[in-house]
Design a protein around this nucleic acid. Structure first.
Ligand code: FES
Ligand code: FES
Lengths: 132, 132
DNA sequence: ATTAAATACGACTAATATTATCGTATATAA
DNA sequence: TTATATACGATAATATTAGTCGTATTTAAT
């Protein structure tokens, strides 16, 4: 319950690794996979995902790789989570409305208040705070 | 990702339902299950779990049921979550240390800081805030 | 041109966690 | 004695997450 996914974890590990280098320098999937003992294929998809989102930049071909393409101080953890995993809510009813029988739920409002608190927490936290 | 479980949801629905009654009055599993369209057997286990934890009190036999047995203002959502679902952490390494290859993780410290923030958020929130 | 090393990406499989059900035992008021 | 309720371990069904496979594309180096 209330766990983050491997995908997010791998993404953060990769970002931190890239930030330790000169900003122009490239990092390959393989380099990160072997360095941190992470499954390369899954990491690859995660990096591709971040590249599509413009968080990192891809350079193809041999000697290619990725580099950070944005100011990570400007991306909140909430936005980061949502880019990688979609809408962030403790209950599905925060977005969809198919949580328990329609209309009969007696805790929807308070639960959404909690949800707002959690989203707010992650909104006030930048990716940089994790990867610096 | 970062979702609460049905068990927790059903528990909160049940608590709220019971709080709307006179404090001595009993509520059966069936009553809640039919009222909110919730699976009765699963709800039953959840109520039994809460009874073991002393959050609610069980009265057996026909015309039996449950009633709230504690001041819900005194129980934090963090403690509530942990009673029902065990240790509360976004990553397993917060408690166990078998998250990614030992020693090679570069984000353990910052992730645990985030984790502390989240635990803190739920520590400052009482069950009463949800069920009142 | 050819090769080799890297990214790109959809489809698939495996593993795990969550959710729900079943069967049976026990308690107790009527 | 019966009916109705809680108690609880075991199991089944479902959903989510994690990981793999196969193939295509890009491009620097030879
Ligand atoms: S309908 Fe979403 S918390 Fe009940
Ligand atoms: S070892 Fe837990 S976040 Fe990496």
């Amino acid at each position: 319950m209330l766990k983050i996914t491997r995908k997010v974890e791998y993404a953060l590990i990769a970002l931190r690794h890239m930030q330790l280098k000169q900003s122009e320098e490239l990092t390959s999937t393989k380099e990160i996979a072997t360095r941190y003992g992470v499954p390369q294929q899954l990491l690859a998809k995660t990096l591709q995902h971040m590249a599509r989102d413009g968080i990192i930049e891809a350079v193809q071909g041999p000697a290619g790789g990725y580099r950070v393409a944005t100011n990570l101080e400007q991306i909140s953890m909430k936005d980061f989570f949502e880019k990688l995993e979609g809408p962030l809510g403790m209950m599905d009813c925060y977005f969809d409305s198919d949580c328990i029988q329609f209309g009969s739920c007696n805790i929807r409002v308070p639960i959404q208040r909690i949800n707002d608190n959690m989203r707010n927490l992650f909104s006030q936290m930048s990716v940089q705070e994790v990867t610096q």
